[in-house]
Amino acid sequence: MKRLGFYISIYRKIIIQDIKSKMSYRSDFIISMIGMILTDISELAAFYIMFLNFPSVCGWSYHEMLFLYGFSLVALTPLQCLFDNNWQLRHYVYEGDFIKYCFRPINVFFYYISEDFDTKGMGQFFVGMGTIIYAWYKLKLPVTFVNIAALIVALVAASLFMVAIMNIAAASCFFLTNSGYIMVTMNKFRDYAKYPVTIFPIFFRIIFTFIIPIAFIAYFPSLVILRPQEIPFLTWFSPVYGIIFFYISYKIWMFGASKYSGTGS
């Protein structure tokens, strides 16, 4: 417990420094924020145009699809805001700068990840929340304490999956020299998280459920709110599975870091 308090206080200090340094480039912050929001809005526009021509997708209505999309945006915010430094990992490893993280008396993974807080990710959070609220209102879903609590638990659990996938993808640079394209390919999978997994044939359903578990980012957790009468077993299992999957990714990352031998410079 004491250690946890210690880590939280360190985290706070590092993040404050990082935000201060980012705020000195204010125009960059504003332009990035607009860029982020624009990306999400173009996706929404794509949905809108699609549903102008088609009434539903595999039994999913426009507003249900919007809910899924908003859900996936919010669930991906922690990845964007807190774990963005993973994208730089391969440069640190390749150029030898990673060694500096190995000399601190704190957890390497924690120290490395905490170094960057991506402020522009907040734009994604607000668009996602707005979309969820709009879809919630249009679908006339009941606003009860249980529903809200379920939404929060589901969002937290869902956010673990993509973080874990990207942790593993980033950690591959400890074993290969260049992991950029692995990260880009894996990152693409998050675009598929916003579709109900039932549209895929059984083979891909299994892959997207167990191997690259993107079905847990929006589809399975959303069912708790959208279709409370037909919740599959996997939905209840998702928080546990999320924690296990995240733990595995953390172990792989740490194993890679322990294999790191520096560049000799």
Binding site: Y25, S27, D28, S32, G35, M36, L38, K120
Partner: peptide, 18 residues
């Protein structure tokens, strides 16, 4: 002029692709 790179990039990409 702007010395902002990520934001400009992403905006261009979104506008062009859409």
């Amino acid at each position: 002029y702007t010395q902002s790179t990520w934001g400009i990039n992403i905006m261009k990409e979104v506008v062009v692709l859409f």
